[in-house]
């Protein structure tokens, strides 16, 4: 075996091994500690888990490409909330009254458009000013959240459209609508990152920006496109989720950026850019949702869940670092 093969296998497969470990642990622990009689690995429970993974998962796919590209987007939670408000509010606008249920695609389109526009604004600022994406989107996070509050004050925005609720609650081939969206987005982003020129260039820019510039790659537009994609996905996540729930609080989506980044990092994408995989991010999303659900299953409360996830994140990154360091020493002769 070549040096480094084992560690690179461990690195790539780590997240899936972790998921299997979680499943085994919660199934066994569930036997003794569970509050309900239902087994943890019950099919319905697992299907529900996939559905619940969707809001974070859809955004995480966008975050993966933004992070591979060497940037980060902290404004996704605010974009998520703003898109939700646009969706629910516009369903009731008098000018659309004559449309009947055709208002649904119009409202969806508007919410998604807002997401793309806010993302484009982020990207444009990062591109044209050269200010670090962390700072730009930190500002955007506060600013966009401000817009959310300006819209309706502290009041929740609510509207239930039953056609929409039926669509969102539907199950096709056993999977919920939200799950299908998550899978479709994962597949689309996977193709984008592995099969297209844009994806290849995103890796190159994240790994060595100067070399990318010297190869004639237009760095700015690529970054802007990625911010537009993540803006679109943050809005899509909101649209899918609030079609069903029908009510959004101005504080919704807070800390989403951190959950999303946690999932992406657990999946092995580097904060410094240039490396990462969409499929592993999917694993990271599942791993987090499994933890939240599993700990709930055995009776832990939310604060315990957060504590455990925090510890595991640090432990995983520590492990990853150890494996990386080892790999390097073996290679450097």
């Amino acid at each position: 075996m070549k040096p480094g093969t084992l560690s690179s296998f461990l690195k790539r497969g780590a997240i899936w091994g972790f998921i299997v470990l979680e499943l085994i642990f919660f199934s066994l622990a569930g036997e003794f500690l569970a509050l309900s009689d239902k087994a943890f690995m019950d099919l319905d429970n697992m299907l529900l888990l996939l559905k619940q993974s969707a809001p974070i998962g859809i955004i995480a796919m966008g975050m993966t490409i933004v992070m591979i590209n060497g940037n980060i987007d902290l404004s996704v939670g605010a974009i998520f909330a703003l898109a939700a408000i646009i969706l629910l509010d516009s369903l009731t606008w008098p000018i659309f009254a004559g449309l009947g249920d055709w208002v649904i695609p119009v409202s969806w389109g508007m919410a998604l458009l807002v997401g793309v526009a806010l993302g484009a604004l982020n990207g444009l600022i990062v591109w044209k000013t050269g200010v670090d994406a962390f700072i730009v989107t930190l500002g955007a996070m506060l600013g966009y959240r401000g817009l959310v509050f300006m819209y309706n004050g502290e009041q929740p925005t609510s509207h239930l459209n039953w056609t929409l609720v039926d669509f969102a609650e539907a199950q096709f081939l056993g999977l919920h609508t939200a799950t299908w969206f998550l899978l479709a987005v994962t597949a689309a982003i996977w193709v984008l990152m592995t099969r297209t020129v844009h994806g290849r260039n995103a890796y190159a820019i994240g790994n060595n920006r100067e070399a990318a510039v010297n190869a004639g790659i237009r760095v700015g537009p690529h970054m802007m496109i990625n911010f537009m994609i993540i803006g679109f996905l943050a809005a899509l996540s909101a649209v899918v989720f609030y079609s069903e729930s029908g009510s959004v609080n101005p504080n919704d989506g807070q800390l989403y950026e951190l959950w999303v980044i946690t999932a992406v990092v657990l999946g092995g994408t580097r904060l410094t850019g240039g490396a990462g995989s969409v499929i592993s991010t999917f694993g990271g999303v599942l791993a987090i949702q499994l933890l939240r659900k599993g700990l709930g299953h055995i009776g832990a409360d939310t604060s315990t869940v957060n504590l455990v996830i925090g510890l595991i994140l640090i432990a995983v990154l520590f492990l990853d670092r150890q494996l990386n360091v080892k790999g390097k020493e073996e290679l450097k002769i």
């Binding site: 890796y203 190159a204 070399a211 240039g274």
Partner: peptide, 9 residues
Amino acid sequence: KGQGLVLGM
């Protein structure tokens, strides 16, 4: 390494 190559590719 800094300007010519993308080392991670």
